[in-house]
Every structure is written in structure tokens, then in C-alpha cells.
């Protein structure tokens, strides 16, 4: 498969960063080393030939029973070049830690908070990493596959 421009640029600047890549169903995807995300994101945003100026989404996937267990998924979009890019980081830690993208995109703030709340991913350098969807006192991270779907932690009313 021919490497895309973004792939080549990243490999040129950070030779060790890209672990794998694919373009399943036309979605260009790169799997990076976890530590490289902030630098690569800065390159993607600021390089004049890439200009991925939109951070569309941050989420995580829990592949329970697989090594590595967690994937943190970023979706970028370049408005001038009309292109999309998906970047994935993998981690096998129980509470993976990755660098926050808040210095580059303001919107990363809430997206990362949500990811932390529901999956328990820690974002290093985030200004306010607290629960956003759920409440103080909620134990666990509900979108993990090992969290039972109906395990309720009500504030008032009958317990489970």
C-alpha cells in the first residue's frame, strides 16, 4: 500500500513513531507509539502541507481479552485539504496514561474528560481531569467491558 502524505511526513520527522497503518474502508488510519501523540499532533496541525486543523473526536475502545487492551482513537480533519485521518494509540495498562492535546485544541478538554470518565484513561497535562457525564462518588468506568451494564450506583432511591 502506498503511504499517505501524513504518514510520510510523520515518519520523516519521528522515525520511530508509526507502528502500523491501514486504510480500511477508505479511512486512513495510523497506529502510533503512545508517547509520540502530542508531537505528532502538533506536526499534523502546524505543517503547511497537512493542516489538520480540526480535532473531531477523541474516544477509546476497550478490547477486553486482547493484548493490548485499550485503544485511544483520535479523528482529525483537514479543512483546506479535505482529508480525514484516524490515529490510534494502544496500551495494555489498566489505567493508560497519554499526553493531553489541550495545548493544541481547546475542544480536547471536554473530549478527554469524557474519555477519562467513561474509560479511565488518564491524560497527562490536562487542566481539569474530572468526571463529566457521571457524578462524584461513582466508582469505576462504565464503558469498560468488565463493568456490568446494569450495575447502578444511585444517589437516592433504592439500591441495586
Amino acid at each position: 500500500m502506498e503511504k499517505s502524505l501524513a504518514h510520510r511526513k510523520i515518519e520523516e520527522k519521528f522515525p520511530q513513531a508509526v507502528l502500523d497503518s491501514h486504510a480500511q474502508h477508505g479511512d486512513e488510519t495510523l497506529i502510533l507509539r503512545k508517547e509520540a501523540i502530542l508531537d505528532v499532533a502538533r506536526l499534523l496541525k502546524e505543517d503547511s502541507e497537512l493542516q489538520f486543523n480540526f480535532l473531531m473526536d477523541i474516544t477509546a475502545v476497550d478490547y477486553l481479552g486482547r493484548q493490548p487492551r485499550f485503544e485511544i482513537v483520535y479523528h482529525f480533519m483537514s479543512l483546506p485539504f479535505n482529508r480525514r485521518l484516524r490515529i490510534k494509540l494502544q496500551s495494555d495498562d489498566l489505567y493508560p496514561t497519554v499526553k493531553s492535546l489541550t495545548p493544541l485544541w481547546k475542544t480536547a478538554n471536554w473530549l478527554e474528560r469524557e474519555c477519562f470518565d467513561l474509560y479511565g484513561i488518564r491524560f497527562e497535562g490536562h487542566p481539569n481531569l474530572t468526571r463529566i457525564m457521571l457524578y462524584e462518588g461513582f466508582e469505576g468506568h462504565p464503558l469498560r467491558k468488565d463493568y456490568p451494564k446494569t450495575k447502578r450506583q444511585p444517589l437516592i432511591g433504592p439500591q441495586n
Binding site: 457525564m133 457521571l134 451494564k149 446494569t150 450495575k151 444511585p154 432511591g157
Partner: peptide, 13 residues
């Protein structure tokens, strides 16, 4: 919605 986040009817409170 039968899941961790939703109350099963307001008549519980």
C-alpha cells in the same frame, strides 16, 4: 434504557 445510568421510573423516588 436499562443500564447503569438511568433510573427505572421516577416512582422509585
Amino acid at each position: 434504557y436499562d443500564n447503569y445510568a438511568t433510573m427505572q421510573g421516577i416512582d422509585t423516588v
